[in-house]
Amino acid sequence: MPDALVRLHQLTVQFDDRPVVDRVEMAVRRGDIITIIGPNGAGKTTLIKAVLGIQKPSSGKVSLANSLVIGYVPQHLSLEATLPLSVRRFMLLSGRSDAECEAALERTGVRHLLDASVHHLSGGEKQRLLLARALARRPDLLVLDEPAQGVDINGQAALYDLIRQLRDELNCGVIMISHDLHLVMAATDKVICLNQHVCCSGYPADISHDPAFIETFGHQVAESLAVYHHNHNHRHNLHGDVVTSTDVQGACDHEHH
């Protein structure tokens, strides 16, 4: 078993004596994709901010591997309207070379926007720009906060697919927060359901049957996922336990019917 890139030991973050993140244990290794789901106010963003070193833990520990390079894709890029900035300039501020920046933009499919103003980008384009920005740093660990926000449903599936491909190419670990349960269930390796504490965690097929998951998200969500996963499980049985990209295509088709 390779060493963990990040390991959380009993991580607790309190705001005004109220625990927002409560004794969370978690480890991320190279090649892992871990998705954090949970209701609003469950402490998802606080948890990844602790991983990023932006939020100080109240108790417990975040241990990072030596000289770990983290690529962070924040939830929004809300640029002040008074600040003129082109995509190229934003990429170059990462301190990487011109060629590296262009290659990263090419990889996320927005190279044609090189000379566009960041203010003119759509929600989906901004997300891909932020992803390229993280990519240019050649990260060991990719941390994404709701990467598919403001992206239409076709784009969402493609984006999650891209994240999985990047994981393979960079051999990095991935932690992401997501609300897109259906897509997450198809694209991820491991799901952690957070509600201050880790209420359940495991592989997508198992977790939708977990009583704690049903309690958190209600029967309706769990049932809709269970139905969805019934189809999905057939593919699993044919191909083994690993979720492959054809499943994601299947998941996408399923969404549209």
């Binding site: 990023l52 070193g53 932006i54 983290i70 962070y72 934003f90 501020l93 990462s94 301190g95 740093r137």
Partner: peptide
């Protein structure tokens, strides 16, 4: 310059970098 501009654009992203 680079640090100032970066932390003006996105403070948390700058911090992570």
């Amino acid at each position: 310059w680079r640090g100032l501009l970066m932390s003006t654009i996105h403070e948390e992203l700058a911090r992570v970098e």
